[in-house]
Design a binder for these strands. Sequence first.
DNA 1: CAGTATCCAAAGGGATACTG
DNA 2: CAGTATCCCTTTGGATACTG
Lengths: 110, 110
Amino acid sequence: MSNRKGDIDKETILALRDGIELLSGKWKFCILHNLQTHGKMRFKDLQEMALGISPKILSKELQELEENLLITRTVNSTRPVTVSYALTSYAKETEEVVNALIQFGLKLIF
Amino acid sequence: MSNRKGDIDKETILALRDGIELLSGKWKFCILHNLQTHGKMRFKDLQEMALGISPKILSKELQELEENLLITRTVNSTRPVTVSYALTSYAKETEEVVNALIQFGLKLIF
DNA sequence: CAGTATCCAAAGGGATACTG
DNA sequence: CAGTATCCCTTTGGATACTG
């Protein structure tokens, strides 16, 4: 309660909205969580982890995460070609958000 | 990394998705943050805090938060009638999520 | 395997005016 | 003041089929 009532902390609100924006999308938290716990994952692994995500959506969310420097995309010279996704060091910042959300979700039930 | 690759922790994923669901909506985090920092707030205060939210949306999100027992709605016997919103004790669980998100958002810029 | 292309339904959210 | 009602547009996300 560092602010008086009506004295709105705009920077905090903007930071909040920025954070939300980068993590918006139905599957982003799941993707981040899975990469946190499993390390590198391929497209297909990610598709199976979250039951029922269509390839189009997964592709889109991965691209957004990559654009925002939260994950890397690596093409492996195998046959057939495989692609690995992994968190950037920068994405460490998201771990607390993901974990807090998981803790919150767990407390909803029990 | 307690799980082997491919051994998906469904409960964690479901908790994550439950948490996300309760907090989904463009303004919920802002509402929660403002109630955290300012305590009780009236409808109009909340409307001003987040520049540009329409009354319909604010009303909807407040109802959803109330349904999920994260906030209380109190009608004050004033003239004209005013209504106060405040966090429930249960909503303490959301503070860490909100704060983690703010920290993440702040690190995006600086 | 790792996507892209196309099509489509539903949800989300805003503007505005109105009401008790 | 605290909403609700109406209208409308945009975004989101899913199903499916196809490609290198």
